[in-house]
Design a protein around this nucleic acid. Structure first.
Lengths: 195, 195, 195, 195
DNA sequence: AATGAATGAGCATTCATTCAT
DNA sequence: AATGAATGAATGCTCATTCAT
């Protein structure tokens, strides 16, 4: 693996462990097994390195959302949504402290936001992706034609997001099984509204 | 107003504007119109001051949750839930950057968590409060006897939480009317599941 | 006891416990059971308070030296010297850290020195006092007429001084009996030179 | 010379001039011709730097004490002791304010003590070294077989120590000749006791 | 005389960044 | 590209002193 990737992974590790405020370039360098100077051969600044790491979060969720689009009309809606919910729970959980750290520095927040705006990406796109999927299912008649697709997406992903937030806050870990239970309970309640 | 309160309010203002990472004691003092030394006559450290400010967030939501308990059986369930949703949207919106900043420093996270554990409080209690309310309504027969009260609470507050998060992330403001629309759409979709 | 004395005694206690560098006016006030402001009603500054405390050290030794002058020709020379040695060991031991602290701040050193010069006092006077006593004994024929009285004084008090210094450095306490043994051993060796 | 040594020497200079209490990192850096930050590339803290300087005091005396052991039985005892006395007077004089400063901060005192305990060194070892030398001379029959070697060492070094202390206190300098006279007078008085 | 909140200059220390090698 | 010593601005915090009450 090249040094740039090693640095990025080391940074991610340190950031998740120590939090943005307590993450120093010295420690990143140590974790990456290189010198502090090397960081600056591959990233313009610590902030750039952080933004680079940030952009690589939520990969599983993004993949799940991409594949979700092509699942419309195939496996049961509920199964599809559950798959997304599980990916969301997993990724939100793993990345929550990184994601939240953007609010501790307006400069980072601004740059992160602009970066997403440019590429027309961003975490809020997740909700749009679920919405888009549900619209397709609506056209296919697999969910009620009065269903507010966006509201459904917001409820599903919102509950997963807050759930992950609270687990992180409480310092608790959750097994895959517990995650599945959470998804099921939420989907049980949501399902009547989708018909 | 006494200096301690002035400092706390100034700190809140600066923290919301600059983010935790860019908030200095010098700037808090300036905003409070006092010397840096005075900060330390009233708070043991910058961290303590931050935790103090943090604990005073979400006051409206907490008040709404308290009054919610006594609303069981009175006004329509949906109205009661909407009231909570609006309080949540408002408070989450106003406090999101502060709340999220706790993840940028594990020490702060730890102390904030312990503080809540001691007082048996915390943001996760919000969901429990809504759950408790819904359980009462279930006993009163105003919602279906199969309803998963906790899942309903998680969906409602979770969607509000993530909505506020995304607004903050996008740097957008939302009118009260828009907030009400969001609440309505979410509750529309949730309602069938409550019957 | 009046407040001024209470403050002085509290300061002495704190200084001996914490060392000059770690002694704060806040702690002195706490130890004296008064406010920090009161310190300044009785002493012009913390430095003045320290100098006041400093001047009240070695009281026993000074008393012993005063009474020593009138002992010339009475009890055996060796007994008189031993009495002085014991007073020196006791006082040096109790005051060493205070005495040494004057070297940590040239301003204090200067003022302490000037204070003594004015009043024609000072710790070096101790050696002169023993010298004066020995000169009397020499005139009385109780010690050899070739004896270098000042050298004898320097040897006796010097060994006591360094002994106390080293005990303090090592953090050891010494019983009165051990102190007496030290004095005896030193005087045994010194005695042949006095004849 | 490397920066670490330059910093240490600069620190020693500033400490001797200003006293521990008035020695700031800013001034040390200035005296060393480097930035304050550089201090921390070579020493963990100001305290560590001080302890480093402290451990390099009394080098001449230590050398004299080492060579003293091999002088037993060679040059006259009195000459050997005088050599030690002169080294002691010189080093005590030059280092007194540094040595005494350890009593102004219990933390420094503790760490300095522990450092010596570990390495089985320390200023009190000086007296033991002289004692050891005298014991050899006793075995060689060059001093009386009843002589209390430790008491002799304590008298000799103690008087030198206090002499240096008082010179520093009085702010006086002493020529090499005056130092030799002091040593001679003290040894004159001590000599009868050694036979 | 006694208070103690307010002060603000001063301090040790940190850390992202640079640059000569 | 890799290094790591050097930097110095910036930070949180301390504490002797003041002064209105």
């Amino acid at each position: 693996m090249d040094l740039k990737s090693r640095i990025a992974e080391a940074a991610e590790r340190v950031l998740l462990t120590n939090g943005l405020a307590k993450t120093t370039t010295k420690e990143i360098a140590k974790a990456a097994g290189c010198s502090e100077g090397s960081l600056y051969n591959h990233f313009k600044s610590k902030e750039d390195l952080f933004l680079h790491v940030l952009r690589n979060q939520l990969k599983n969720l993004m993949a799940a959302l991409t594949s979700l689009q092509s699942l419309a009309g195939t496996s049961p809606v509920r199964d599809n949504l559950k798959r997304v919910a599980l990916a969301a729970l997993g990724d939100f959980n793993a990345s929550m402290s990184l994601i939240c750290s953007i609010f501790s520095d307006p400069n980072i927040l601004y740059r992160h936001r602009e970066g997403f705006t440019e590429r027309n990406e961003g975490p809020h796109r997740a909700n749009e992706a679920v919405e888009a999927y549900l619209l397709k299912e609506k056209q296919l008649g697999r969910i009620g034609d009065r269903v507010d697709a966006r509201a459904a997406a917001d409820l599903l992903l919102g509950s997963c997001f807050q759930h992950a937030f609270q687990l992180n806050f409480l310092g608790r870990e959750e097994s895959l099984e517990e995650q599945a239970q959470f998804a099921d309970r939420v989907l049980d309640l949501l399902s009547p509204g989708l018909e």
